[in-house]
Design a protein around this nucleic acid. Structure first.
Lengths: 141, 141
DNA sequence: CGGGATCCCAGAAGATACTG
DNA sequence: CAGTATCTTCTGGGATCCCG
């Protein structure tokens, strides 16, 4: 019956959730999602990854030009963080003037794919969300 | 040839990225990802969604008990935000003492599925990331 | 019980100036 | 050019008090 299929799916979802939550009550080792989300949940990481996904190799100021509104400090911080996690690689050419090129690592590329999935969801549902917001603001008037 | 297949895939990815970035240089209407990420990129939204995914209906203090470390203010703020976007529904029972139940809307459930995909990626790659971090910290000594 | 409103602080983000 | 250093500003979030 359709019901049991649905129920099975629900069960699988719950199992997955359990695994994700893991030892959430404990202080430390824990939660992959939260850790991962913290990486690219910030304001600039996503754009950085997307830009590098488009262009493969980019120098610092090229990136800065492509990401509207980012300050050079925040771009530095963002790139460092991504480099630290092995999502972005940084190549310094010891020339004068100096040249530094950034690109996605294979790991970074695989994350990009995930982000694009998420983007699909977002595009698919953005109207519903906007509608919900409008409804909400109307209600609270 | 394999090469052209890979190239085609790359092309599709770049097209997708273009769509996601859309008019990123313009100030306003823009970027679904960023908007969506801003919703659950914060500290507590994910946990809230996961918990409601597990339990269907939860009262405020039940939720507070399940999400380790959340303050009542932040839980309130988080729930309001999720409700505003139509991801969580809030049902008030006008009793004494008052009772309020929260649950995921269909939209929220579909987001949950996406988050679980992301969690799969995270679990699959968490070791690589930790390794990269270790390498990075060793390098900078 | 389930929050709303207010106050306050630490740490994140921005602007600017300087350097190898 | 690609940063680092420093200063300031802003915001997320905790603590507390209150109400229906």
């Amino acid at each position: 019956m359709a019901v049991t299929i649905v129920e099975n799916q629900q069960l699988m979802i719950k199992e997955k959730i359990d695994k994700v939550l893991c030892t959430q009550t404990e202080p430390e080792p824990c939660c992959p999602i939260k850790d991962i989300m913290a990486r690219f949940g910030d304001k600039w990481s996503i754009y950085t990854i997307l830009m590098l996904g488009k262009q493969e190799k980019l120098r610092f100021n090229e990136l800065k030009g492509l990401i509207a509104g980012v300050s050079q400090r925040m771009l530095t911080v963002t790139l460092r963080s991504l480099e630290e996690d092995g999502l972005v690689s940084r190549t310094v050419y010891p020339e004068i003037p100096p040249r530094v090129e950034y690109s996605l690592t294979p790991l970074g590329q695989s994350l990009l794919l995930q982000l694009l999935h998420l983007a699909d969801w977002a595009k698919l549902n953005v109207d519903q969300i906007l509608e919900a917001r409008a409804r909400y603001s109307r209600k609270s008037v």
